[in-house]
Design a protein around this nucleic acid. Structure first.
Lengths: 205, 205, 205, 205
DNA sequence: GATGAATGAGCATTCATTCAT
DNA sequence: AATGAATGAATGCTCATTCAT
């Protein structure tokens, strides 16, 4: 009985998906992946050169799209000349929309990319997302605090924290929810909390 | 050239601190800790019985205090009979205060306890903190949504998400900030964002 | 050049057999076993989960049969109500027969079980055999010395010593003889020495 | 507070005595010996060059006397020209007497020498004692069986077994009894069992 | 004399990866 | 294509021994 190459490859990917999800890149065991895929561990290496490439096969595609979208948003932000805070903050909606959109097609892969890529070449993705979020918040802060050097410095620290926590929260919601509608609703609520909260915070500063 | 015992112990702890911080409990290497401490791996075991006890020596003290505080708050919450949402939410201030207080004496240790203890006996600490946060939010939700079964269910999901993200955010701020005053300010601002944001969210629901 | 799995497994067992025979359970080195088997140490673990299971694979089967036989004899002794010394002593023949029988199929394994299992879960096997031998001799002593408290006490000490030396002697014969017929003859002669000697000793007491 | 050298040395020896008794040469831990002696492990090496010499210090003296006695008996046996079996067997009494005599002054040391010297340079002592016992029994056998080649061969195997088990039994009695009078009585009874048993066996051959 | 810190080789075990079949 | 045996380096840990103090 011969199993088609594509089926085996598919099995490996499925097995790897669940292993990387559970264990993360470093701790995931190639043996366990092979076992779950119903093949021998040596055979995995016919389909994927090594652990890194297997990981790549899983998160690569979603990362590619993800990176393209983010690049786009990033450039929009850079080129934007507006000094209107709400308009700037609306970029968050784009980021959020991108993530929710990607989640619909790649829920597990995106979750792995953002939460389980430690030790792999993708471990920088989350920090870069934080940087992007920061670049948005930074603009708002700069507008509000320009000219007040001390408050500006504090504002930047605040922006960094908010960027990091917003992103971390989104990643967490991704981690804990498998169902698309629930996820979307939660992320909406989450972003709502943040936008109202940040508005209030900026208002009083 | 012989180094005094206390200095070596100190070196080991410092090396372990940075190794556990970077790698987490499981991935941290005793050999690497020894190397960073400038000694041979065998010698580490003169100072600490094994990896677990070395980890314990680092996070144990802070965990003891942490657990005592949280226990106290937990009991207060259980015994509280108020149905006043803002009053219930004020428990967050206590949790926040406890963490900031502990951070002053044990910044790295607390961060390791909360973020890098996977695989150790302390791995449940963060989830338990999430549970505590959830028990606070849950009370508020139940008050607001009692009687509306469907919305209650959604509210609980929301509360779970908020509990998880709040805690995760605090842990993150802990991770990224070494300086006490900055940390305190950031956590205050962070909690402010959440309390305003949650208020707004509940208001419109 | 690739060696077939069964051959390697066999080589490991052979190597382990001789290592355990020479060194005993605790001192035996997995590295040395691997080396003797002509493989690397990691490969041993493809065949046996760990040292304990490798030991188990060697002495487990013989222990299972051994334990079943001894259990049977043990119960016969317990239920026996006879006060006839020679009849009681005839249980030794059963024990002897069992051991000789097992030796035919498992000479080295039985020897390891009885003489080289210190530190393993089988380390109690020899002491239990001594207990069994004692329970036989004890009955005889009690019959002969009942009512004479002082001589009874001495008799029990004597019975303990005889039980220990008889068993130790049998184990020794097992250790030094690889050939079944020789072993059987020697154990027969050995038991003959003991039964005549004990008879003479009891006669004059 | 200064402890005299002799006292420390004495403490080490006492500690080593009990450690070697419990664990045997190989498994005994220098650290544990130092600890029991109330000193640091490094200091042991001021008194004894290494584990081997410490072991030597303990069993060396008794071995010296033991070896001298055995040498003497050995020569007597070699030079003896008698063909009278009982007379030859009486050498056993000498061996037995020697051992009991040494036991009075060196109970633990002798026990260690015979039962716990595996892995040390004294590990051959017991086999040599077996050889001595064999040389006695061999003479008796040769007398009884001379001229019957086949029976002679069998007799030699028998003699080897008896030598080994007699010696092993004595060593075991040594191991299990700390009190001199009990030991003497047990060894007497033990030898009585063997002499009567062997007599009976030879009678019927 | 004594300390006890330090070494380094050893142990059992795991695992990504290679490769003969 | 696939197997699964094999490797070798890594892990946590122990212990006899050395040596600066």
């Amino acid at each position: 009985m011969q199993i088609l190459k594509d089926e085996v490859r598919h099995n490996i990917v499925q097995a790897a998906l669940s292993e990387f999800k559970r264990e993360g890149y470093l701790t995931a065991s190639m043996r366990q992946i092979a076992k779950s895929a119903g093949i021998t561990s040596g055979n995995v290496y016919r389909y994927f050169k090594n652990k890194e490439e297997l990981f790549d096969a899983i998160v690569g595609p979603v990362h590619e799209q993800y990176a393209a979208y983010m690049q786009e948003i990033s450039q929009e932000i850079e080129h934007s000349r507006t000094r209107d805070a709400p308009e700037i903050l609306s970029y968050f909606r784009k980021v959020e929309g991108t993530i929710v959109e990607l989640f619909k097609s790649y829920s597990s892969e995106l979750m792995i990319l953002l939460n389980r890529s430690d030790g792999s070449k993708y471990e920088k993705v989350k920090p870069e997302l934080v940087d992007l979020a920061f670049s948005i918040l930074d603009k708002v802060i700069v507008i509000k605090k320009s000219g007040q050097a001390r408050q500006l410095q504090e504002g930047i620290t605040l922006a960094r924290m908010l960027a990091a926590t917003i992103v971390e929260g989104i990643c967490l919601i991704l981690r804990d929810n498998e169902e698309g509608d629930t996820l979307k609703r939660l992320i909406d609520q989450y972003m709502h909390v943040y936008s109202e909260g940040i508005a209030a915070l900026l208002g009083q500063m």
